[in-house]
Simulated scan of single mutants.
Amino acid sequence: MQPDCLSAEGERRCRQLLARTTARFRARPAAAAVLVPLCLVRGVPSLLYTLRSSRLTGRHQGDVSFPGGKCDPADQDVVHTALRETQEELGLAVSEEQVWGILQPVHDTRKATVVPVLASVGPLDLQSLKPNPEELLAPGAYQPRLISPELHPS
């Protein structure tokens, strides 16, 4: 049985709650977008996040982050930015149909607007991910991490 938070009813409620924010911020210009990937790992609801390589140039070296990055002029909107960046960084293809909505934008340390895009990526096997060594720590030295009650008991 799928946990309530990732059930069809949970998805419907979440999409409904985010509908206004999604409509308001989807086509607005932003500096960057990130994907907030909801997933199931061994049946437990989890969030996937990454650790940026210390070899990166710029201010995000060694940061813990959701997959994402700068908006490119070729991106249709912030959703496409988040999906493209997730594919580039993790080799994880997420379709637009998996997107539940857009959360309130946040601002980084330089006051640039970052738009979080919420999506369910379903059951996830960490071994299936292909982290980009240019952006994330090299495979073997690091694997993308999950936030999950089962994996991190209180």
Rank of each mutant, 00 (worst) to 15 (best):
H107D: 05
S7C: 05
D4H: 12
A82Q: 01
R52F: 02
E96F: 03
Q2G: 06
L137W: 10
D75H: 09
T109E: 15
Y49P: 02
A27Q: 14
A30T: 02
E134A: 15
R52L: 00
R84S: 07
Q104V: 10
V78E: 01
T21F: 08
S46G: 11
R52W: 02
E134Q: 15
R12M: 13
T22G: 04
Q76W: 06
H152A: 06
A19L: 13
Y142I: 00
V106E: 14
T50E: 10
D125A: 14
D4V: 15
F25I: 00
V34L: 00
T113W: 05
P131Y: 01
P153A: 00
H152Q: 13
S46M: 01
A30K: 04
A141Q: 12
V78A: 14
Q104P: 07
V106P: 03
A8T: 13
K111C: 13
A74L: 11
L47E: 08
S120E: 14
I147T: 04
G43H: 06
R84F: 06
A31P: 00
L92A: 05
Q143W: 02
L6D: 08
P67E: 11
A33E: 05
A112Y: 14
L40H: 03
D125G: 07
D63G: 02
V114P: 00
A19V: 08
S148M: 04
Q87H: 11
H80N: 09
L83Q: 07
T22D: 04
V34Y: 05
Y142W: 11
L136N: 10
L18C: 09
L103S: 11
T81V: 13
A141Y: 09
E88H: 08
Y49S: 11
L51S: 06
D125Q: 14
Q16A: 15
R55L: 15
T113D: 07
C71K: 07
D125F: 03
L17S: 12
I147V: 12
Q76V: 14
Q2H: 13
